[in-house]
């Protein structure tokens, strides 16, 4: 196991992507998931509970993927970009659910 080929910057960025990017991604998934389930007629508390049950398994998978994936750019794009995108969509859906 050698990390000599990797720059410190790469490792820091990778760790940040796994934790911060992972968090943003799961946040987006949870909020969008709640919004979608509510659009489908599920009450707020049940939708929240459902997403909370899935959230940490998803975090685990995305965290591991952040280190398994070859391209760091793709990791940031999927986790950070995807997370923001999902959060944005959830944001748009919320007013329609009130």
């Amino acid at each position: 196991m050698s990390t000599h080929s990797l720059s410190t910057l790469h490792v820091v960025s990778r760790v940040a992507a796994s934790l911060l990017g992972g968090y943003v991604f799961v946040w987006g998934f949870v909020t969008l998931g709640i919004a979608l389930l509510m659009s489908a007629g599920m009450p707020y508390d049940e939708a929240t509970t459902t997403l909370y049950l899935l959230a940490f398994i998803l975090f685990l998978v995305m965290f591991c993927w952040a280190f398994a994936a070859a391209s760091l750019v793709r990791v940031w794009a999927v986790l950070g970009g995807g997370g923001l995108l999902m959060t944005g969509l959830a944001w748009l859906l919320i007013p329609r659910l009130l």
Partner: peptide, 27 residues
């Protein structure tokens, strides 16, 4: 480890106090 996280999910992903507060209140 997993159930410990789920017990405090509301702390780690406080959607009801932030982004989804209007929905939580209405509920």
């Amino acid at each position: 480890a997993l159930s410990g996280l789920i017990v405090f999910a509301g702390i780690y992903f406080p959607v009801g106090e932030t982004m989804m507060k209007p929905l939580a209140k209405a509920h």
